[in-house]
Nucleic acid binder design. Structure first.
Length: 802
RNA sequence: GCUCAAAUGGCGGAAUAGGUAGACGCAAGGGACUUAAAAUCCCUCGGCAGCAAUGCCGUGCCGGUUCAAGUCCGGCUUUGAGCACCA
């Protein structure tokens, strides 16, 4: 047998698969479809990371197996190529981001192909291609037409170094997710998408999909539904009332002051009444420098300014109470103002102590002078007028009713989720297809003018006041209004990277369609995605955004189903050999090219699947890689002692058990144990120094989804007919998986004393007879009374003695 | 602080559904082959005691339920992830 040379055979098979169009898929309503999806990569300058092959190999295994089972499989790939790193690289090196993107995509493509994935490359999608982003823009226009895209002056997260507005979701640990720079708050006119309008449906419809539980939970927590009341506190001597949201209307008698966010719009309206306005302005400026995160970091030391000359009235008892501004109240959550109940809320308690404000106990439980009493499970209302003596639950209902009847409030559902800040003052993104006209306001471009392509610019940097680079091209900006034909200006902001990835899975079904995002026939056949695997880090960003877009597309009749993905699984990270996250600065980065070069793609694939439980993080180990290569070498040498014939009689059970285990384990993403089972079978062949043709073919078929090149090569060398990827998946017989003899552990008082062997069809009496015949059992039982005997079929015979 | 995971040999990790803990792989030690090395093949491999048979201990810690607990329950500790003054 010639030596195993992965370099030769892997290239050979990759070329053959490509030449044979082995994995190109066609819509065929007569066949059962299976749509497997992996998150398409961002083609970064660093090239493929060893983290990429983990999820890709996993779903490649599923896709290959399902094809062998006869399903019509769509397993596509593409590139999510708009985004900051490319733009920053382009600025630094004075190259067009398009050039950089093309180079990176070429490299990624070569790397992915070298790993032998069964992607349908003919459907490859690139979000920066104008034929693609035409439809991203089209979807935006539809959102705009339905009132779900709107422009708003609002405080946004502003990255000082990137000079770009960030969605809340993009601020990580108080710094910019991309550059790590300082994030401050800045009021800016931004496009927003009303994802909040879909909040309830995004929660409810999780019941209809098969996502791993922690993903569902994380999405629910992120959306953060809470039920409460909005209550109006009249401002003394003014026509307005200060509206708050609270989940605790029962505690309204305990309200001793109120707090507004420093950005609250009512402040400016009443600045004439506020005698310490200078102080307000100063506090507001300081608050603006802080991000939401910094405001929360300063939790221990409450700051604030009391508004002099403006007081509120507690509608419950008519008492006048002071009003403060403080940065711990955020304008973006609820109504931007709170009623403070220091007796029963820790933050309010801290604030009241610091400013010497009264603390009233309204739920009996004691000790509100020492700390806030927050246990609401039991406790009766006190100091609360008509609520006295009620439980908290009763008081909530009674207070809500009373407030509603008196016109002070209404019950309300509130969500933590905020609208999606959708504009970026950046170059490398989809231009927002909107024109602003003095007369008509904002108007969408007519569909016929799409795609609105990115114009060439001299420099990709923003203007110093943070305007998009596109604003520097007057001949592009100045245009005519699509409505009135008068002079108008184009929107110069671009869309965030998340836009293109919010619908790409639909495009895969019909990637070249020029008339629609995808044709109804193709969408109807292929969607929803049957199985989507991706990182946990995308749970609240990409996954939620794309569900939102998909629901919108469903509402306007484009997408055939309400949910885009039937099943969602997640993989763990691959860490460096030292157990830390791989990064250049830690010097623990492993390059997949080097592994492929030294050991082969099949070894890399087997290794990453064998490394540990799929959903858990795993550390890289070069020794582990060697072990997997050794396993493939052992498979390679099996033909040395191959014999003609079917399954050996005495190996029937083992073979059928292995087929069953591998079949079930692949679907359960338990690749490590599936591979262990195949190793065990190979060890068995070695022990006997014999493998029959049928046994060998079965092993190759089982192994082929994980290690497709070596399997295909061995199949061919052994004179196998057709291609392995076209052969049917091995079948197993449930009856033949059963052992005819079983080993049973005999225990005395739960401790194993002996092992006996009985025939599978023998029952308890046989076990009992053999058990008591064992010397060790006799010794342990001697002189004692047998109290109880427990028999677990095929496993345990336990004798309890006293 | 809140939520969710996780903790098993020298290492990565197995253990359907409460039923023989450590599958499979790595590393290590020993042996065969070889002039030698590599590769390959075979054997040993949780700890303590013992020549051995065997006995005792052992799945982060403390308790509990059970004939039987890595697995279930209560209370902790540590690590990781996500969120965080959310009203």
């Amino acid at each position: 047998m010639q030596p195993y040379e992965p370099k030769k055979i892997e290239k050979k098979w990759q070329d053959k698969w490509e030449g044979e169009k082995a994995f190109e898929t066609r819509t065929d309503p007569a066949r059962k479809k299976f749509y497997a999806l992996v998150e398409f990569p961002y083609p970064s300058g660093q090239g493929l990371h060893v983290g990429h092959p983990r999820p890709y190999t996993a779903l490649d295994i599923i896709a290959r197996k399902r094809r062998m089972e006869g399903q019509n499989v769509l397993f596509p790939i593409g590139f999510d190529a708009f985004g900051l790193p490319t733009e920053n690289y382009a600025i630094k090196n004075k190259v067009h981001p398009k050039t950089v993107t093309e180079e990176n995509i070429a490299r990624f493509t070569a790397q992915l192909k070298s790993l032998g994935y069964s992607f349908d490359w003919s459907r490859c999608v690139n979000t920066t291609d104008s034929a693609y982003y035409k439809w991203t823009q089209w979807i935006f226009i539809k959102l705009f037409e339905k009132g779900l895209a709107y422009k708003s002056e609002m405080p946004i997260n502003w990255c000082v170094s990137c000079k770009v507005g960030l969605a809340n979701e993009e601020v990580v640990n108080g710094v910019c997710e991309r550059c790590g720079g300082e994030v401050v708050r800045k009021v800016k006119s931004q496009w927003l998408l009303k994802i909040t309008e879909y909040a309830q449906r995004l929660i409810d419809d999780l019941d209809d999909v098969d996502y791993i539980e922690k993903v569902k939970l994380q999405q629910k927590n992120w959306i953060g539904r809470s039920k409460g009341s909005e209550i109006d506190f009249p401002l003394d001597g003014a026509q307005d009332a200060l509206r708050v949201f609270t989940t605790r209307p029962d505690t309204v008698f305990g309200v001793t002051y109120m707090v507004m966010s420093p950005e609250h719009p009512l402040l400016d309206k009443y600045k004439g009444k506020i005698s310490n306005w200078d102080e307000v302005i100063k506090y507001r400026e300081e608050a603006a420098k802080k991000s939401d995160f910094e405001r929360t970091e300063l939790a221990k030391d409450k700051t604030g300014v009391r508004l002099l000359g403006l007081e509120a009235v507690n509608p419950a008892n008519g008492g006048k109470i002071p009003v403060f501004i403080s940065d711990y109240v955020l304008i973006s959550y609820g109504t931007g103002a709170i009623m403070a109940v220091p007796g029963h809320d820790e933050r309010d308690w801290d604030f009241a102590k610091k400013f010497g404000l009264p603390i009233i106990e309204v739920v009996a439980g004691g000790g509100v002078d020492e700390a806030a009493y927050t246990d609401i499970a039991d406790g009766k209302m006190v100091n609360s007028g008509f609520l006295d003596g009620m439980s908290v639950a009763e008081a909530k209902a009674a207070a809500s009713k009373w407030l509603r009847e008196k016109g002070y409030g209404a019950e309300k559902i509130n969500y933590k989720l905020r609208d999606w800040v959708f504009s970026r003052q950046r170059y490398w993104g989809e231009p927002i297809p909107i024109v602003r006209c003095e007369k008509c306001g904002y108007a969408a471009l007519p569909e016929g003018e799409l795609p609105l392509t990115l114009p060439e610019v001299e420099s990709y940097t923003q203007t110093d006041d943070g305007q998009s680079p596109l604003s520097k091209i007057p001949e592009w900006v100045n245009t005519t209004c699509p409505k009135c034909g008068g002079p108008a200006q184009r929107e110069t902001d671009t869309m965030p990277q998340w836009a293109g990835s919010s619908w790409y899975f639909l495009r895969y079904t019909d990637p070249d369609n020029a008339e629609a995002p995808a044709s109804p026939e193709n969408l109807k056949y292929w969607t929803p995605v049957d199985w989507y695997n991706g990182g946990m880090e995308h749970t609240t960003l990409h996954l939620l955004y794309s569900r939102f877009w998909h629901k919108f597309l469903y509402d306007i009749g484009v997408a055939p189903t309400a949910e885009p993905y039937l099943r969602r699984t997640s993989h763990g990270m691959i860490l460096g050999e030292n157990g830390e996250k791989m990064s250049k600065s830690r010097g623990n980065v492993v390059n997949p090219d080097e592994i492929v070069d030294e050991f082969g793609a099949d070894t890399l694939r087997v290794y990453e699947m064998f490394i540990g439980a799929f959903e858990l993080a795993a550390s890289w180990s070069m020794d582990g890689v060697k072990g997997c290569r050794r396993f493939l070498e052992r498979v390679w040498r099996l033909p040395d002692f191959m014999a003609e014939g079917g399954y050996s009689e005495d190996l029937l059970t083992k073979i059928h058990q292995t087929i069953k285990k591998v079949t079930l384990d692949y679907e359960a993403l338990k690749f490590n144990t599936a591979i262990a089972a195949m190793m065990s079978l190979v060890n068995e062949f070695y022990k006997r120094e014999r493998v029959t043709r049928s046994e060998f073919e079965t092993l190759l078929a089982l192994l082929s989804p994980v290690a497709p090149h070596i399997s295909e090569e061995l199949h061919e060398l052994a004179g196998g007919r057709d291609r392995l990827y076209k052969t049917p998946w091995p079948a197993y017989d449930e009856a033949l998986c059963e052992e005819d003899k079983v080993t049973i552990a005999v225990q005395v008082n739960g401790k194993v004393k002996a092992q006996i062997e009985i025939a599978a069809d023998e029952g308890e009496s046989a076990a009992e007879e053999k058990a008591f015949a064992e010397k060790a059992v006799k010794n342990a039982v001697e002189g004692k009374t047998v109290v109880k005997k427990i028999y677990v079929k095929g496993r345990i015979y336990n004798i309890v003695v006293k």
